[in-house]
């Protein structure tokens, strides 16, 4: 995680977008701080892309305000890098040519365009493809080129729409590491419906559904304050009903406990700290533990708790 400051870079107030009868974004407000990775997490159709399209100026807002340190979009647009969900590139230009072209579009000095293009291609593992036409790249390479195009002008704010969508695991790790490395110097907004991606990358997360923001906090706080908490699964050898009943009665005072056959399921916030006490109680009840599994509370669990349904893919 990067070290973000409390300086607000983007201030969004009452942002709303209607498409005829559909309210895609419904009166949302949030701030993005300098140097942080801010994640918009939500299922497809939650309004994430619509929100960032309004931030970038690609869609007009029906209502609300977007301020960039009290400046309008037109003043700061050259400081924003946008990587859309769809790979957008010039199919007939080579990787190097189009990076240089877009660099030129942002008024980068001619020498610097080539320098930055080479630097980004190297950073994203595309040096070997610099003279290859973009349309001939693999899906993962196109995605990386898409990110490079958003960064060619060295923007202060980087907006990434589903940066890992459709990538193989190897490319996903590469891009994740790359985004992490950028967070040292840039403010990043990323959208995703992949809770693992957001959990690993974001400093703060806004959970969106049906155009509304349900909660904003750090992944850690969300996981440790929302929902039923971590899940501990303990398999017990030859559990007799008398002993287990006594144990469950005792544990239920503090935890959410279920016994299914020989599997004891315990749910609670900050459960890791409580494992010694639970295992002691089991031993005191005269039972033997065969296996213990701990599954941490995830953002998906948080989302399910908040919405009553799973993140749709």
């Amino acid at each position: 995680m990067s070290a973000s400051s409390s300086e607000t870079v983007i201030n969004i107030t009452g942002l709303t977008k209607h498409f005829k009868d559909l309210t895609a974004v419904d009166n949302i407000s949030f701030n993005v701080f300098k140097g942080e990775i801010f994640g918009l997490l939500g299922p497809n159709g939650a309004g994430k892309t619509t929100t960032i399209n309004m931030i970038c100026g690609l869609l007009p807002a029906s209502a609300g305000r977007i301020d960039f340190q009290s400046r309008g979009l037109k003043e700061v647009k050259s400081h924003i890098g946008y990587c859309p969900q769809e790979n957008i590139f010039f199919p007939k230009l080579t990787c190097f040519e189009q990076l240089v072209f877009i660099g030129n579009m942002y008024d980068l000095p001619p020498g610097m365009c080539g320098e930055r293009a080479g630097y980004l291609l190297d950073l994203l593992g595309l040096t070997g493809k610099s003279k290859v036409c973009a349309k001939k790249l693999s899906g993962g390479m196109k995605r990386r080129l898409n990110i490079a195009l958003a960064l060619i002008h060295d923007p202060h704010i980087l907006i990434l729409d589903e940066p890992e969508a459709g990538l193989d695991p190897q490319s996903r790790v590469l891009i994740r590491d790359f985004i992490k490395s950028l967070s040292q110097e840039k403010t990043i907004i990323l959208t995703s419906h992949n809770m693992d991606e957001v959990d690993r990358l974001a400093d703060r997360v806004a959970i969106m559904d049906y155009g509304k923001i349900m909660l904003i906090d750090t992944p850690y706080n969300l996981k440790n304050s929302i929902g039923e908490g971590d899940v501990l699964e303990i398999e017990i050898l030859e559990a007799s009903s008398d002993k287990t009943s006594a144990l469950i009665s005792k544990l239920k005072n503090e935890y959410n406990v279920i016994l299914s056959n020989n599997l004891l399921i315990v749910k609670a916030i900050h459960l890791v700290d409580k494992i010694p006490a639970i295992t002691s109680s089991i031993k005191e009840a005269g039972l033997t533990i065969k296996e213990i599994k701990l599954r941490e509370n995830t953002l998906e669990d948080v989302f399910i708790y908040l919405t009553g349904r799973m993140l749709r893919q």
Partner: peptide
């Protein structure tokens, strides 16, 4: 059609 106009719109051109 290629949507590359989006990149141009966001740039300074």
């Amino acid at each position: 059609e290629n949507k590359t106009i989006l990149r141009l719109k966001l740039s300074k051109i």
